[in-house]
Design a binder for these strands. Structure first.
Lengths: 310, 310
DNA sequence: TTGTATGCGTTATCAT
DNA sequence: ATGATAACGCATACAA
């Protein structure tokens, strides 16, 4: 029965019995028990997806593409924001971590399991697939500089859980240094109320910026929500985007398409990264070799209405 | 060993061996194999979460609360947009369906498994937990009517996959009928390009509305994205919100907080529903009885800046 | 108080 | 071409 239903018959079987078994299976609505199969096969045919930001639209895009890829390849998805539980023996065949490959707590919990990280990296990193935030931010800076902006601000929000280095900051500064622009940094560490809500943070920090610095002609926001907050602060100030101040943001989530004005934003290939990561992980699981050189996907600027030349 | 590690010892065991076993387990970093346990226990301690709209912020909120609840109760989460695969024997102990309890394809696939639906219902429905869209829309209508609006439009987008009845439409119409208001319906069935993007749909339908009907003073949008589209169309027309036209939306996703102006929106208790559903499902799984009368949670209007009295 | 045996539903190996 | 049987790793009922 097992041989027939799995279409793996090393020895020949009569067509008659094949049909007989298949029919019986259909009659009783039979479907193999996955726990039993997993036990003997040592494969659960499910992969674990970990992320601590389940509510982020960025994660949603990845979830969707990973789900699709897995289903297409006959795999299932276990999602959790808690690593310890998801990595128990027998539960998953591999791990997809929306997290930095540097996080040692995660490495410790994923020993023995094929693991692929989806995160930003400047250079290819083993078992990590992603994109370069340095490069993305560099492109954003280049874009603003090409439009003639020299007095710019970077709206970074809080920066304590970004590791290793704030690449977006570095990439942006690199351009501005090259072209001789001056950069104001907007970030906060203290006010805990600000940290919780990106939109509010963007609003508040931009308000302060506009009070203190009258020369800024462009703002680079670390993500779309911060940019929306900036938009609001600028508007309240009686200034216009892009008339008085240009705004470029990052991630190109749905927010960038639905705002007023629409946001020029650096698109991160998160969905593609998720799909590729799932593919690669499953291939790794099935083939056995665990050395995956890593991939850095390109970021692209999506031009909309929030930037103008000076 | 099993008895000790699971803290279930019907017969007494010497403290010495208990410690000996625990220590050995620690030494070898032992963790029970979940597949083997599931096989003998007939419980996988994981529940399946199904939704076809993985990318919806509404779903994200639910995912987060369900994940949290499950983890707290020692359960795991299998997420999929494909029902057939998730309901295989041995994979999950129960099903959480973000879908209408009326969908027969889903019922067919969930036979034998404890199942709870999370969906809108006007009245309590067995094994379904949710909120009343009729009531939510009624509140929205009441809110506009209290502000004096009588010439209103309902921005519904497309309506083909809403079943059984478009309750939001019905609830809103009920109020307007009561107060003698006149209602324009804005929906589309034809243009397939419109159907794909809620924001674009809202924009386009509102544009048409403003061309055809100059008397409308308020718009009720079926969701936040449609409302954002309406905002854009109104703005382009040279009108202001709420100065010339009031807009009230539905779902109260993050979009409602970040728009200009911020949107007054009907909040749907999706996170709470998810948490309660997960709790109830797990209790059902563990107790065995499968009759759950159903719950209808209240909706609430979150007042912001997009509505004004006439 | 401790040890042993049986079975969960598969797959895979070895006899017939 | 078919059938029988041993694991897989655990929980549990029962024997010692």
């Amino acid at each position: 029965v097992s041989r027939i239903l799995n279409n793996k018959m090393p020895m020949p079987i009569s067509a008659a019995t094949i049909e007989r078994v298949r029919q019986a299976a259909r009659d009783m609505n039979y479907s193999p028990n996955v726990a039993a199969r997993a036990l003997v096969t040592r494969r659960s045919k499910t992969i674990g997806l970990f992320s601590s930001e389940m509510t982020d639209p960025h994660f949603a895009q990845m979830l969707e593409s990973v789900d699709e890829t897995c289903r297409g390849l006959g795999y299932h998805l276990a999602v959790s924001s808690g690593m310890r539980s998801i990595a128990e023996p027998g539960r998953v065949d591999g791990l997809l971590l929306l997290a930095s490959p540097d996080r040692e707590e995660l490495q410790a919990l994923s020993v023995g399991l094929p693991t692929i990280y989806v995160w930003h990296t400047n250079e290819p990193v083993t078992n990590c697939i992603g994109w370069s935030d340095f490069d993305g931010a560099y492109k954003a800076g280049q874009y603003l500089s090409d439009l003639g902006h020299r007095n710019v601000a970077i709206l970074y929000g809080h920066c304590d859980d970004e590791r290793p280095a704030p690449q977006k900051l570095a990439g942006f500064l690199k351009v501005m240094e090259k072209v001789g622009g001056s950069v104001s940094n907007c970030w906060s560490r203290a006010a805990s109320s600000l940290l919780e809500d990106q939109f509010e943070t963007g609003y508040e920090l931009t308000r302060r910026l506009l009070n203190e610095d009258g020369k800024v002609t462009a703002i680079f926001a670390r993500n779309d929500l911060l940019a929306l907050g900036a938009l609001k602060a600028i508007r309240e100030r009686g200034l216009s985007v892009p008339g008085d101040i240009s705004v470029i943001s990052y991630n190109d989530t749905i927010h960038a398409r639905c705002s007023e004005p629409t946001l020029t934003s650096v698109r991160t290939p998160i969905a593609q990264a998720g799909a590729l990561a799932a593919q690669q992980l499953i291939q790794t699981v099935e083939s056995g070799d665990r050395v995956f050189p890593g991939i850095v996907l390109p970021t692209t600027i999506i031009e909309r209405d929030s930037c103008r030349s000076i």
